[in-house]
Amino acid sequence: MNVQSTPGELKLGTTLYSFTAAFHSRQASFEQLVAKVAELGVGPGIELVGFQSIRGFPVVSDSFAGHFRELMARYQLEPSCLSINADTALCRGQMMTPEEAARYLEPQIRAAAKLGFPVAKSQFAAPAESLRLLLPLIEQLGIKVGPEIHAPLGVDSPPVLAYRELYAQVNSPLLGFVPDFGTCARTLPASYLDTLRRRGIEERALELAVSIWKGPESPQWKRDEFNRRATELNVEPTKASALSVMFSMLSPHKPESWLEIMPQIIHLHGKFYDFDAEGNESSIPYGQILPLFMKAGYRGYMSSEWEGHLYAWEPGYEPVRQHHALCRRILAAM
């Protein structure tokens, strides 16, 4: 074991999205959540969803920007990534052109730079071409931009390949990807399956979904196969629809697959749901993932992103604290 490696090189942080339940239910304000990150020791990185944390986004007033910088200084936190949205289906039943998508993303990227975020995380709903159009602005602002690779996508999925092709053409260090580790799940979180049971999903429907989820087939095939077999089993449609969420929540890709695009990784989403008795994430193998990124030379931030609020409407403070303890333990052992 190399005891001289410094665990601080992969920097940890938190996205306030983890605390969605506390914020949405008006239990905690934006300022209180920032203070909470410092209190729990789950910084130094702070990630925000622009359209969640900032009223009036993508307009960011000078006074909000000043207030935000003051909060970062007061709590010794650092802006790591601003999560922006590619709302390309704003008009229902119609998709934006690459030019329209670029115009929609532009004020959000400017907002990220104004707030001092080094990275703006976008989404595949914007076609790759829109980033080519935005590259002059991105270079002028000196900010990194790229879409999040979220389940069910992996490095070889068609939308990801389209971006990789563009990146190979333009060859800019400012364009990249943000992997979400929900893509590397070995199984589905026990707490999630228990919630589905409590909400009345029959065991046979649950078993069907989980067995299809675990297979190596494409996400679309899995969803279709599940829907076909759920209909055969007479699973009630609202329950079938609730179950099909799992195919885009988590996917079973191999952590090693990220090595293929490692130099283009600009930020990480440390997605997690719950923990086993030893404090390990119950479905996502952080003990494999973090050493892989460290050894490959990744030196940016990872935001802890608790998404248990999808089914457990809790503030999320304790799970984020546990996730940081787990990650620090893994990094310190390297």
Partner: peptide, 9 residues
């Protein structure tokens, strides 16, 4: 929903 949305959706 967890983030603001336009009324069109």
């Amino acid at each position: 929903w967890y983030r603001s949305l336009p009324l069109s959706v």
